[in-house]
Design a protein around this nucleic acid. Structure first.
Length: 383
DNA sequence: AAATCTCTCAACCGCCGCTGT
DNA sequence: GACAGCGGCGGTTGAGAGATT
């Protein structure tokens, strides 16, 4: 089996490992300045270093090379890494070749410690650069698990599907127990995913929105949040579905309205009442993307410099906020369809540009909807 | 102030492909 | 064709710094 250093080097006793000292660095620099690099196996001996050639090469390539750029990655570099990674995958050396002064090791580290986490927070799978199915489908799961009560038009958990979870026939309902809500949602997720994994027919529309075109209103009932997707993904989707390509100044509200109704038809009709305009915004929000994965999930995202984000819009955040929302509204009465708009908990948060916000791509908008609560019976209900 | 936890990133490890013999 | 040596790559580790309790 190959070793980190060659066999001949390995047989030499006294090869040093671990952090390099300044003296070692200087020896390596001096030698390479005189003789150039290459012939890494013989280099350490000639340079008077008790290191294997591989270690010398790594030290030079990742740290001592004079053209290495130090310091924090710029926003542009970060964008570039994400874009390239969406095309190349973990080809760090190829990615590094497109970022002058940055090493593959540095980019790899930055990806693993920063970007990956960031994408996950945004609800993006860092491997595929597409929306994470668990986030996308959560709202649909909940919606498909709900039935409307004909008497008060308040949707309730369909106990026929998950009787054990909701304590049918017993005095304790899972929905009344905060510690069980998360596991409830997880339980809801798994059967849906296994059932629907084959049914992902993505459609993407991009819509410019002006205040005049916006009718206001809240999310459709089966929207629980929004997520960001990469331009690469959007581009691919639009190539696949040219009829859904971007149409400037298309009335966003009506477009979404129609699609939302279609979703409702396929998912929840006839229990769901008429659908209101599914979203609103603060001031002008350009470059909105509307994403419909064909599985009953609608999302509107904001595009910023080719990549989008939504603050705290991650699966954990959704779970936590959903839980909080459910608990905080546990004493609220069920809403009737007529006040869907006014009772919408759609939230918009204008992004800021401070340093911390860089880690969330300085998103300009955050759309987040938790329209769930516990009704008077202690069961989940939509508002 | 001390203990503990979390994060970062330089360095190492193991594997792969290329080249020379 | 088989083998060995080497450079290069991507994954992983662990020491140290910083943050938190």
């Amino acid at each position: 089996m190959a070793k980190s250093c060659s066999t001949s080097e390995k047989n030499n006793n006294g090869l040093k490992k671990g952090p390099w000292t300044p003296e070692e660095d200087q020896k390596l620099i001096d030698y390479i300045q005189k003789h150039g690099h290459g012939k890494w196996r013989t280099l350490p001996k000639n340079a008077g270093l008790k290191r294997c050639g591989k270690s010398c090469r790594l030290r030079w390539a990742n740290y001592l090379r004079p053209d290495i750029k130090r310091g924090r990655f710029s926003f542009e570099e970060e964008e570039m890494i994400i874009q390239l990674h969406s095309v190349l995958g973990n080809k760090w050396s190829t990615i590094a070749a497109n970022l002058p002064g940055r090493t593959d090791n540095e980019i790899k580290n930055y990806w693993n410690t920063h970007i990956k986490k960031k994408l996950l927070k945004m609800g993006i799978d860092p491997v595929t650069h597409t929306p994470r199915l668990d986030v996308l489908q959560l709202s649909s799961i909940l919606s498909s698990t709900l039935l409307y009560n004909n008497n008060n038009n308040s949707p309730q958990i369909n106990n026929n599907y998950y009787p054990s979870l909701f304590g049918i026939g017993s005095s304790s309902s899972v929905a009344n127990n905060p510690s069980h809500v998360l596991s409830l949602l997880t339980s809801l997720l798994s059967p849906y995913q296994s059932k629907n994994n084959h049914n992902v027919s993505n459609q993407v529309t991009r819509t410019e929105l002006s205040p005049a075109e916006d009718n206001g209103g809240g999310f459709s009932q089966n929207q629980i949040g929004a997520i960001a997707i990469s331009p690469q993904f959007l581009e691919n989707q639009m190539q696949l579905n040219p009829s859904q390509a971007f149409q400037p100044n298309q009335p966003c509200a009506s477009n979404l309205h129609v699609e939302s109704q279609n979703i409702m038809k396929s998912k929840l009709e006839p229990q769901i009442p008429s659908i209101s305009t599914p979203f609103s915004h603060q001031n002008t929000v350009p470059n909105l993307w509307h994403y419909n994965n064909g599985g009953g999930n609608n999302m509107v995202i904001n595009n910023r410099q080719g990549y989008s984000s939504l603050v705290e819009n991650n699966s954990e955040g959704i779970m936590a906020n959903l839980m909080n929302s459910m608990l905080s509204s546990s004493t609220a009465s069920s809403s009737s369809p007529s006040n869907l708009n006014s009772s919408s908990s759609t939230t918009f948060v204008n992004g800021t540009t401070n340093e911390d916000e860089r880690d969330s791509y300085g998103s300009n908008i955050f759309m987040y909807n938790i329209s769930n609560g516990l009704n008077n019976s202690g069961l989940l209900s939509l508002h």
